[in-house]
Design a protein around this nucleic acid. Sequence first.
DNA 1: CTCCAACAGGATGTGCACATTTCTTGACGT
DNA 2: ACGTCAAGAAATGTGCACATCCTGTTGGAG
Lengths: 238, 238
Amino acid sequence: MPRKPRKGDVAADEAVYGAIRRAMHMGRLAPGTKLQEPALARVLGVSRERVRKALHRLVHEGWLTAVPNRGTFVPTLTVEEMRQIYDVRSMLEAAIVRRLSEGHGAAAAKRLKAHVAEEKAATRRDDRGRLFELSGEFHVLLAELCGNDELTRLLRGLLTRSTMHFSLAAPRQLTNCAGPHDHGDIADAILGGKPDKAAKLMLGHLAGLVTLQAARPPQHEPVDLPEAFRGIKARRNE
Amino acid sequence: MPRKPRKGDVAADEAVYGAIRRAMHMGRLAPGTKLQEPALARVLGVSRERVRKALHRLVHEGWLTAVPNRGTFVPTLTVEEMRQIYDVRSMLEAAIVRRLSEGHGAAAAKRLKAHVAEEKAATRRDDRGRLFELSGEFHVLLAELCGNDELTRLLRGLLTRSTMHFSLAAPRQLTNCAGPHDHGDIADAILGGKPDKAAKLMLGHLAGLVTLQAARPPQHEPVDLPEAFRGIKARRNE
DNA sequence: CTCCAACAGGATGTGCACATTTCTTGACGT
DNA sequence: ACGTCAAGAAATGTGCACATCCTGTTGGAG
């Protein structure tokens, strides 16, 4: 007799999906780690099918790699693949900052200034965790300010994939982006209406990131799943 | 007693996935059409779970839209969404042709010339079907010539989503791109090493396409599923 | 002592049965 | 006649039970 599902379970997949995604973002899961379904189901306290569906989704979105009859693994990005991702980011983000420099609304300017201010505040507080989040969101914010949802979604996927590997390599030692003042300079160029300067700064910024990551090969240490998901579990909010 | 699965079934999902994808590309499925699982399973001759998995994948990739407890539907792209897709394409493809114009190998030049020649041949033969394919592949080819797999995959997704709606609106009346000589001009600019000219031509080309599509609102006629999948089915090859 | 093969344990993949929700049809009341 | 509501039917969502495959281990042979 199948157990009867509750009506609130519609958001459960999202919770499981978010939990795994969060664990990866926190750098708990090293590249090459095998995510086996029964163990995850036990740790997260949900059924195996729920975990299964979440894993499939993560695979389709490029977060994980699936090998038939073998399981799903945390992908080991090569230096070349990472370079390619940053290459695409360069194309898109150069165009983004160029466009924003050529014209943007007052609301956009306000949001941009607010974000830079928050980053500086986090830097002063030496709040690495918050700064890590903000650094990533800065690039998403620029896409959002273009008012193109498709662009935002695409860039978010690219960014998460690149920063994921970043956080895996050096969870809490480095910040997400090379220097927070980079973002401030880029914002200034945008607000000052200097397309070429903004684009040049952005390209330099991204180039700095890719060299920073290339110099830091990922470590191959085995991971204990229950330990990795300590304190994360599957929570409803987000 | 569960029926025992055969070892060749690992590629069956791909076949189902491809069948639905092909039906959409052929313009058989009008926007707003509901794809119900039992009917698809009967038509394609596979189990419902197989269809289910394929639909989920298509939803994750943005081809279909899922409403909880309601089903999955062929998305109705608004003019605004289409404009946004072409906007992102403009950013990427302008950067692509600019880069190719600034330098490319002999093999790249050869492939580019061959493609343009094939397009001209198809035009002379008045082979609309082949020209439709070639027109789309031209843009993918440019991405491939950059040697960036990530870029190619991204652009392919963008292109299929935009041309899908195109083929739905006018399956066999128009060609994929405005004029085949547009592609020839762009190729000439790339081969001649003129970045600005190539980028300008590409932007104009894409702008022409978006206006062409915007002037053609999709029709809302109900679709019969068995009729839509006539001759498509789920085949292994591809 | 090393290597290979058979075996056991476990993980993944898939069909199936049922609960829940939604849509449709029909009847009733205003 | 029209709107409303209820009951039946169909579709979706989910847990479960195997079947298949992979992997690590153990035993024996060279």
